[in-house]
C-alpha cells in the first residue's frame, strides 16, 4: 500500500516537474516576473532565475526517475514547491490576475487563491513523499523501471514532436520566401 503511494507520488512529481521544466525552457521570454517588474519590485536576474528553476526541476525529475539520491531529490522537490508557494502568495499580494508562469507560455493558469491551494497541496504531498522515503527506502526494481520508461518515453516523444514542428516551420518559411 505504502509502496504504491510512493510509486504514484514518484510518477506524479516526475510528470509535473519534467513538464513544468520543459515548458519554462520552451518559453524563454515568458515570466510572471515581467508582470511584477512594472510594479517597481526589482528582482535581480529575474529571467535567469526563472530558467535556472527550469533546470532544477528537470534535474530533480531525473533523480526521481532514476531513483538516485532519492532523499536529496525529495528534499529538493519539497523545497521547490515551498518556493513556488511563497512566490505565488507574494505575487498574488502584488498583482492580482496574473498568470502563474508554472508552465511558461505553454499553458497559462491564473494565479489566484485556488491555484495557491493547489500548490500548497502539492507542497504537502511532496513533504509526505519525502517522509515516506525516509521510512521505506526500498523501492522495487519494477517501479524504478516503470518510472524510467515514463520519463524517457515522455522526453523522447516531446523532443521528436518539437523537432517535427521545427521541420514543418522551416518548410513553411521556405515556401513563404519563394518568389
Amino acid at each position: 500500500m505504502i509502496q504504491t503511494a510512493i510509486f504514484v507520488l514518484n510518477l506524479y512529481f516526475i510528470l509535473i516537474l519534467l513538464t513544468s521544466g520543459l515548458s519554462k525552457m520552451a518559453s524563454p521570454d515568458y515570466s510572471l516576473l515581467n508582470a511584477i517588474k512594472l510594479r517597481n519590485l526589482f528582482i535581480p536576474f529575474g529571467q535567469t532565475l526563472y530558467q535556472f528553476l527550469a533546470w532544477i526541476e528537470i534535474g530533480v525529475s531525473i533523480l526521481l526517475a532514476t531513483n538516485t539520491s532519492i532523499r536529496l531529490a525529495t528534499i529538493a522537490n519539497t523545497a521547490l514547491f515551498a518556493t513556488f508557494l511563497v512566490s505565488q502568495i507574494i505575487v498574488l499580494s502584488i498583482a492580482k490576475g496574473t498568470n502563474c508562469g508554472c508552465f511558461g507560455n505553454i499553458y497559462k493558469i491564473q494565479n489566484d487563491k485556488i491555484h495557491i491551494l493547489v500548490t500548497a497541496a502539492q507542497a504537502l504531498l511532496s513533504y509526505i513523499y519525502y517522509w515516506l522515503t525516509t521510512v521505506y527506502s526500498e523501492v522495487p526494481n519494477i517501479q524504478v523501471l516503470v518510472s524510467l520508461i515514463v520519463f524517457l518515453g515522455l522526453c523522447v516523444w516531446i523532443l521528436a514532436r518539437r523537432l517535427s514542428r521545427l521541420a514543418i516551420q522551416a518548410k513553411n518559411t521556405s515556401k513563404l520566401n519563394q518568389p
Binding site: T19, S23, A26, F103, I106, I158
Partner: peptide
C-alpha cells in the same frame, strides 16, 4: 495541469511564443 501542458508541448502547430 501537466496533462494539457504535455498536450501543448506535443502539439505540431506553432504555439504563440
Amino acid at each position: 495541469a501537466f496533462i494539457p501542458a504535455i498536450r501543448n508541448l506535443l502539439a505540431l502547430e506553432t504555439p504563440i511564443e
